[in-house]
């Protein structure tokens, strides 16, 4: 690949926990277009550190698009404007020399800013903890084909399970709702026989927790599905709605 270098101007949100934040402008100079967005921020941070300034705090871990740690709004788009891409998999070849980019944390009432671009997404963990699991006996792994599962269902459950919990759906939602996330976590079990025993209580508890944590209400505008780096589809939201309605008629715990 040809080595191309670009220069950018970044307007980055800087904030300490519990304090008011503000944008600060930095130059990102001589950036290799083969670099990822996070690597570009690494370069900026190195320069900030060398000049005695506080580096920009951002969350990251695997840097290969599977862990769900990274994420920020780049020029108004969650993880940048590429389809099915996390911020670490967004590359600098997507930008032009001289571009000015605004970089902001994923915002929602339920996602308080910890520092700069890092937000507290433990609200998503709380939703999962309230029902996003199956109760199984521990011990040796059972024979895989003991429970037959139709391939379509297995595929759809796998699609739902692709959610990495990055929170882009909440950040992109005009209402700050967590419906796509919750629907994926409900669907991955609702579609499988292993999820059947706790089916009704799971959806009720998870929706209840989601409501209590200050997420907004879904208005079916589908911004979440476009923002999702894993391509989670709104069919799971339709399923969540069905599961929630059906939970009224299913056997009580």
């Amino acid at each position: 690949m040809a080595d191309k270098k670009i220069n950018l101007t970044l307007n980055v949100w800087r904030q300490q926990a519990g304090q008011e934040g503000a944008f600060e402008t930095y130059k990102a100079e001589n950036i290799d277009t083969n670099a990822s967005f996070l690597e570009m921020l690494d370069v900026v941070n190195e320069n900030l550190t060398c000049s005695g300034k506080e580096p920009i705090a951002f969350e990251h871990d695997c840097r290969e698009g599977i862990c769900g740690s990274c994420g920020a709004l780049v020029a108004g788009m969650t993880h940048g404007s590429h389809d099915r891409t996390t911020l670490c998999q967004l590359h600098m070849r997507s930008f032009e020399d001289g571009d000015e980019l605004t970089i902001e944390p994923f915002r929602a009432d339920a996602f308080p800013v910890i520092k700069d671009l890092i937000v507290d997404r433990s609200a998503l963990d709380e939703i999962v903890a309230s029902g996003g699991y199956v109760s199984v006996k521990t011990g040796s792994a059972p024979e895989a084909s003991t429970i037959p599962i139709e391939k379509n269902f297995a595929d759809s459950a796998m699609d739902a399970a692709a959610c990495i919990g990055c929170g882009a759906c909440v950040a992109a939602c005009p209402n700050g709702a967590a419906m796509l996330f919750t629907s994926a976590k409900v669907s991955q079990f609702a579609l499988l026989p292993q999820g059947a025993p706790e089916r009704a209580s799971r959806v009720k508890e998870m929706v209840d927790t989601m409501d209590k944590l200050g997420f907004g209400n879904c208005s079916n505008e589908y911004e979440c599905a476009v923002a999702c780096p894993k391509g989670i589809d709104v069919k799971h939201i339709a399923r969540l709605n069905r599961e929630f309605i059906a939970s009224r008629t299913r056997k009580k715990k």
Binding site: F23, G76, R107, A108, C173, P174, N175, G176, A177
Partner: peptide, 8 residues
């Protein structure tokens, strides 16, 4: 839930 959100 989505108050004081983004500049862009």
């Amino acid at each position: 839930a989505a108050s004081s959100r983004y500049s862009q």
